[in-house]
């Protein structure tokens, strides 16, 4: 089985501020992958969420899609992550017109969520968890919302505003 990640003890809770964010490479579509290290030098927002196709239009990913310009004003990249497969993400992103990547933490299931301390064992999904990583790939802020409560975006924006100012790239 997967020896390397299991050798690293999974943290008991979400990685706290200051922790180095574990790198990953995950499928964003059936034939494309995205790696965390692609975004070195800029802030990254990781939005773990339980599942595609949440039945309300107050959906968290739809909300973040609307707020992308505000995130990009901070030069931040947004990555959505769930255990859904790449084909499922593709259909979901298409239907909701999402303009940011959704990553599949699908095989081995939830492996990346586990390294960030946000896997829900009994449910087989990730927590509804947010991480803002700084330009050096360290956790600047993390937050786990009750799984049924969409956390909104105010915490993310406050975290982005409190990042040390970068020099112009």
């Amino acid at each position: 089985m997967t020896s390397a990640p299991e050798a690293m003890a999974a943290p008991a809770g979400p990685l706290p501020p200051g922790a180095q964010a574990p790198d990953f490479t995950l499928h964003s579509t059936p034939d494309q992958t995205v790696s965390l290290h692609d975004f070195k030098g800029q802030p990254v927002i990781l939005a773990f969420y339980p599942a595609d196709w949440s039945p309300v239009c107050g959906d968290q990913m739809v909300l973040y899609n609307e707020i992308l310009p505000e995130f990009r004003a901070h030069n931040a990249e947004l990555l959505g992550i769930s255990v859904d497969g790449a084909w499922c993400h593709l259909a979901f992103a298409h239907e909701r017109k999402l303009q940011f990547p959704l990553l599949s933490d699908f095989e081995p299931k939830g492996q990346i969520a586990k390294t960030y301390g946000v896997y829900r064992k009994g449910d087989g999904t990730t927590e509804r968890a947010l991480f803002v990583l700084d330009a050096d790939g360290r956790v600047h802020w993390s937050y786990v919302s009750p799984v049924g409560v969409n956390p909104g975006a105010d915490g993310i924006l406050t975290a982005l505003e409190s990042l040390p100012r970068q020099g112009a790239a």
Partner: peptide, 9 residues
């Protein structure tokens, strides 16, 4: 957004 609106309504 700044007040934590998380969907509509």
């Amino acid at each position: 957004i700044r007040s934590g609106v998380n969907g509509t309504p």
